[in-house]
């Protein structure tokens, strides 16, 4: 039975032409969220490197590259794509602050029924960053 889910143009555009889609070789961090039984599973992979900017002496780590793979509906794919755009180039601390709501807002709007189940990309990003921080805590 098909539900009538109306997506806006921006969502459909990201769905049809997803940004930063695919795999990263030797990622510095990755995380997978979702559950096959819900129909949505997404994986975020990160390259993390010190910010190469002489004007900012803190030399903090930034997300220098990000890729995603998603199995899910159009909302899941579009929100993964949008998340990668929002996160790329951000410091880890800035990136951690991105919420699922930020992603939905950046897409204009998502059908209400899709907000909770298919909009998981920010969770995946936060989990990936946490994984990175944990594995580098002892260095």
């Amino acid at each position: 039975m098909a539900g009538n889910v109306d997506y806006n143009k921006k969502v459909l555009e990201h769905f049809k032409n997803p940004r930063n889609m695919g795999e990263l070789k030797n990622p510095d961090a990755e995380a997978t969220v979702g559950n096959p039984s819900c129909g949505d599973v997404l994986k975020i992979m990160l390259k993390i490197s010190p910010r190469d900017d002489s004007s900012r002496p803190d030399n903090e780590n930034i997300i220098s590259d990000i890729k995603f793979q998603t199995m899910g509906c159009a909302a899941a794919i579009a929100s993964s794509s949008m998340l990668t755009e929002l996160a790329k180039g951000k410091s880890l601390n800035e990136a951690k602050k991105i919420t699922n709501n930020d992603v939905a807002k950046a897409l204009g709007e998502l059908p209400p029924i899709k907000i909770h189940c298919s909009n998981l990309a920010a969770d995946a990003l936060r989990k990936a960053i946490e994984n990175f921080e944990k594995s580098n805590a002892n260095i």
């Binding site: 889910v5 129909g39 509906c73």
Partner: peptide, 24 residues
């Protein structure tokens, strides 16, 4: 996932349906 497939086919003018949860 079926809803994605259905939407992609729809953009080609092909109308089908799916049993996926995401489309219900």
């Amino acid at each position: 996932e079926g809803e994605s497939l259905m939407l992609m086919l729809d953009s080609e003018g092909i109308c089908v349906s799916t049993g996926s949860a995401c489309a219900s």
